[in-house]
């Protein structure tokens, strides 16, 4: 039981580390929160909505995302898209990620 809990916590930490990169990589086009959640889920990354929405707000505050409210299907939705600053940062993050993957593959081989 304790082992499972530890495993869950470590997996959660690992996922948390990649969510920013995953979100930025998927926001080249406009997405609202729920559509982004589904987009990530369809690609195999399950993100809790309680993690995603505050993260979107934080990334917007940091200037990496931009958002706009649009009225669609009689329902207002907040659409997020990567900002110019986010676009500058993304390749660097990707490079960093590739380096981490390469290092970890060597370590775990």
């Amino acid at each position: 039981m304790a082992n499972n809990e530890s495993l869950d916590n470590v997996v959660l930490e690992l996922r948390r580390g990649v969510i920013v990169l995953a979100v930025l990589s998927q926001l080249n086009g406009e997405q609202y929160g729920y559509s982004l959640l589904k987009l990530l889920s369809d690609q195999g990354l399950e993100v809790d909505q309680g993690t995603l929405y505050p993260l979107l707000r934080r990334l917007e505050t940091q200037g990496l995302l931009e958002s706009v409210w649009k009225l669609e299907e009689a329902r207002p939705r907040r659409y997020y898209v990567i900002s110019a600053e986010g676009k500058k940062l993304l390749p660097k993050l990707k490079k960093e990620w590739a380096g981490i993957v390469s290092t970890m593959e060597k370590m775990l081989a």
Binding site: Y32, Q49, Y53, R75
Partner: peptide, 20 residues
């Protein structure tokens, strides 16, 4: 900060999820 905005987005998300 941004309480009204959070509430609005939460409503939109919950309605989307419910409809889905």
């Amino acid at each position: 900060k941004g309480r009204a905005d959070i509430e609005k987005e939460l409503r939109s998300t919950l309605e989307d999820m419910l409809e889905d």
